[in-house]
């Protein structure tokens, strides 16, 4: 049933250059996923369990001084760490993660630029013919 021509895929991209690019992509997606979701999962795993309480009604607002912070959902030793005033989880999510996304984008572009330069000078990529011949 399959066509005779080699099928492009992540496993068989048909070029060493693209194969190396795919490794960068895998690394970036891993860091992206861990940074974005892994941290939240850790917060959930070690934090206090309970239903959301916001938004507070007028009575809840008046009584906020009597709330035990440790009993609020997601609170843990991690959320009590402050850095330059910020609770750690806020600093990570609202500040550092955005910088991480930018850093990942810069890293990817620098590496791909280098790959393209190498490929155009013929240093690393023997071309599609060699790769397709392996399939």
């Amino acid at each position: 049933m399959r066509d005779a021509s080699p099928v492009f895929s992540v496993r068989h991209p048909g070029s060493d250059m693209v194969r190396r690019e795919i490794r960068f992509i895998a690394l970036i997606l891993l860091v992206w996923a861990l940074g974005s979701f892994g941290f939240i999962i850790v917060l959930w795993a070690i934090g206090t369990k309970g239903p959301p309480v916001l938004p507070l009604d007028a009575h809840g607002w008046e009584n906020r001084f009597n709330i035990d912070p440790a009993a609020l959902p997601g609170e843990s030793w991690l959320t009590r760490i402050d850095i330059i005033g910020f609770p750690l989880h806020w600093l990570w999510t609202g500040m550092v993660l955005l910088a991480l996304f930018i850093g990942l984008a810069v890293y990817f572009n620098v590496r791909v630029d280098a790959l393209r330069r190498d490929a155009s000078s013929g240093a690393t990529d023997a071309g599609p013919a060699r790769e397709i011949g392996r399939l």
Partner: peptide
């Protein structure tokens, strides 16, 4: 302006909702 619910990770929605 004290309000500990403001910074509590899942006071405004569950971890699942966040993700």
């Amino acid at each position: 302006w004290y309000d500990p619910t403001f910074t509590a990770p899942f006071a405004g929605g569950s971890a699942y909702t966040f993700i």
